[in-house]
């Protein structure tokens, strides 16, 4: 309890991982107005892809293969579960998302036999180091930097490129964007590509710390990342990142205080507080309903 530093470090690291997952949620929500409940399972699947890829490939190949497979999976989920329901009520799409999450979990359970798989050790990243007198894995230090680099790259992508402009237009007004000749389906697919790729990186960082992958392990981080996205203001990327760090840090601090039972509860308590004080989250935009 005396030394708060290791918890703070751990919190920043977990926060970075949440941030990477949260971006997937926030981007999809920004465009489709949908909580992609299956995103947490895509994150888990990325873990399994890594386990299987690393078993037969050298690491420098396994990582890109894993990221690629995750992207394919993310796009596939969108094509199968969300695209057919484009004009359906929002509740149907959300239910489809829940159904998809259920399906993915069951498939993963089936393939792995429900057993926890050891996550491959990534040399250098998984090494233990000592910083300011406390021992931790190098991944803890890398995570926040990597997160920030990726987010900056993403923001540049969204602000400077054509597809980024199309994404911004689509999230502003779905129908009008379509009328202006933007190929909505491509934009949505691209959103899932980016979201899944970031989730894949996040999963690599996350599991390097936790060592084992099980079919339902992604549910909680997934939900928390979603909370982070809401916390920061859904649809806002900086918001998602900040939300991720805040959630991550407060969670580890609670654990450090010896209240591990409440580490999940605190996340949701934070969510409910922010929703009551500022229903659109820290950086969210206000929307008014026309009568």
């Amino acid at each position: 309890m005396g030394n708060i530093l290791p918890y703070l470090l751990g919190g920043i690291s977990v926060g970075g991982q949440y941030a990477l997952i949260a971006i997937g949620y926030t981007m999809v929500y920004g465009i489709l107005r949908l909580i992609n409940f299956a995103h947490g399972d895509i994150f888990t699947a990325a873990g399994f892809f890594m386990v299987y890829a690393a078993a037969s490939l050298p690491l420098y190949l396994a990582i890109p293969v894993m990221i690629l497979l995750t992207i394919v999976m993310g796009v596939l989920v969108e094509r199968v579960a969300y695209k057919p329901l484009r004009s359906a009520p929002r509740m149907s799409v959300m239910i489809s998302a829940i159904g998809m999450s259920y399906l993915l979990q069951n498939v993963m359970w089936y393939i792995t036999g429900g057993l926890a798989k050891r996550y491959p050790v990534i040399p250098w990243v998984s090494d233990s180091i000592t910083i300011l007198g406390s021992t931790t894995k190098r991944v803890t230090i890398i995570t926040p930097f990597l997160t920030v680099i990726l987010v900056v790259a993403l923001v540049i992508l969204i602000q400077r490129t054509k597809i980024g402009m199309a994404m911004r237009a689509t999230s502003r007004d779905f129908e009008t964007a379509q009328l202006m000749g933007i190929k909505i389906d491509n934009v949505i697919s691209f959103t899932f590509v980016v979201g899944s790729a970031l989730a894949a990186v996040g999963s690599m960082l996350y599991f390097s710390n936790y060592a084992a992958v099980t079919p339902v392990v992604g549910t909680m981080p997934g939900l928390k990342a979603f909370v982070a996205a809401v916390f920061g203001g859904i649809g806002s990327i900086p918001g998602a990142v900040l939300g991720g760090f805040i959630i991550g840090i407060s969670e580890t601090l609670i654990k450090g205080a010896g209240l591990t039972t409440f580490s999940d509860a605190v996340t949701f308590a934070l969510l409910i507080i922010i929703l009551l004080v500022k229903p659109t989250g820290l950086f969210g935009e206000k929307s008014t309903q026309k009568v």
């Binding site: 909580i35 909370v227 969510l271 929703l275």
Partner: peptide
């Protein structure tokens, strides 16, 4: 009292959150 003012998705995630909180509190030592 607080949660029902929220709209669709937010309500969903807030109620889900409360269910999790209840589960954690019940297990408290």
């Amino acid at each position: 009292l607080p949660v029902l003012r929220l709209k669709s998705d937010y309500l969903a995630i807030a109620t889900l959150g409360f269910a999790e909180i209840i589960r954690a509190v019940v297990q408290y030592e």
